[in-house]
């Protein structure tokens, strides 16, 4: 049966309300504080390192994001890899079930708006909030770089760093969709937060180990050919890539380390003729990371669709 009217009716007000709710909420302030604390340390110490190590580097600015300083053994991007999911979960874990618990859901849905628009408006509002937060952080890092390094970034560096920002928003989108899925599935906000955080810990701590164990399980006792070896390595990488964090860090590797030529497994024979440490042009780097970015976007859409399907079937009555 066909329903009438645009599914996007009313999406604007929902988006604006979510955005203003998020931006004025205490929760957002706490999350921002979190990000600043977690991000400031790596950035400050990598700037420190960069100031002391004098070497001709064409991509000095990008090193702020990527180098692991001696004092803090974590780079800015690995800190973000860890923190962005937390931000996204913090923004999304109660987006639908809190409306339900406050008994506002049936009232809002009795206005001329489809559930599609409500869910999408909430998602886009959360994503926009995330984007605003990341942009602010990104600008702070660049500003700090300008001040402390004393040289302006080159255009290509800005372009690559901007790519990083876009990928980070998509990465946050995946986790926002996951958090919203749980907020639709569970009526209790605590349960949904716990599940989302559980999944986050699972992907960061457990999944690398499980993936290794699986590979060991699949691997034959004795590796007899190079094809077999390549097959196992590729399986290992494929399993790791099921975690959004892997896709994110691979995409950033390609973007922020222009020397990166491959994100997969490569035999030394395939490297023949390559000039070591020669940076790739931006378009080639983008081509390299395109599968990872597509994977993130696809993951975001798949999880959001799941949330949408569950939400459509949900009873609105208390």
């Amino acid at each position: 049966m066909q329903r009438e009217g645009s599914p996007f009716t009313g999406i604007g007000p929902v988006f604006m309300k979510e955005l203003s709710d998020h931006l004025t909420s205490i929760r957002m302030m706490v999350l921002t504080l979190f990000v600043i604390v977690f991000g400031a340390f790596p950035v400050a110490s990598s700037l420190q390192t960069l100031r002391t190590v004098v070497s001709a580097d064409a991509y000095l600015y990008l090193r702020i994001f990527t180098i692991e300083p001696q004092q803090v053994p974590i780079s800015f991007i690995s800190a973000l890899n860890f923190i962005i999911p937390l931000m996204a979960i913090g923004l999304g874990f109660d987006s639908v079930n809190s409306e339900f618990n406050r008994r506002t859901l049936s009232r809002v849905l009795s206005q001329p708006i489809y559930r599609d628009a409500l869910l999408l408006g909430k998602f886009l509002g959360g994503l926009m909030t995330l984007a605003v937060g990341l942009l602010a952080l990104w600008l702070i890092v660049f500003g700090a770089g300008l001040l402390l390094l004393g040289i302006p970034p080159r255009g290509v560096e800005v372009a690559r760093a901007f790519g990083f920002l876009v990928v980070a928003v998509f990465y946050g989108g995946v986790w926002l969709a996951i958090a919203m899925l749980f907020s639709v599935v569970f009526r209790s906000t605590a349960t949904s937060a716990l599940c989302a955080l559980g999944l986050w810990l699972f992907f960061f701590i457990l999944w690398p180990m499980i993936a290794n164990a699986l590979v060991l399980g699949f691997a034959p006792a004795e590796i007899t050919s190079i094809d077999q070896y390549v097959g196992i390595q590729e399986l290992a990488i494929a399993l790791q890539r099921l975690s959004p964090g892997t896709l994110f860090s691979e995409a950033l590797l390609g973007l922020l380390n222009p020397e990166t030529r491959t994100l997969g497994f490569m035999l030394p024979t395939q490297m023949r003729g390559a000039i070591p440490n020669a940076p790739l042009p931006l378009d080639q780097s983008l081509l390299l990371i395109w599968p990872q970015v597509t994977g993130l976007i696809a993951g975001m859409i798949v999880v959001f669709s799941a949330a949408y399907v569950v939400f459509q079937r949900e009873e609105v009555r208390a």
């Binding site: 049966m1 066909q2 329903r3 009438e4 009217g5 009716t9 206005q111 001329p112 708006i113 489809y114």
Partner: peptide, 10 residues
């Protein structure tokens, strides 16, 4: 209301 919920809810 099944096919034209927006008209009804307006």
């Amino acid at each position: 209301p099944v096919r034209q919920p927006l008209q009804v809810k307006r």
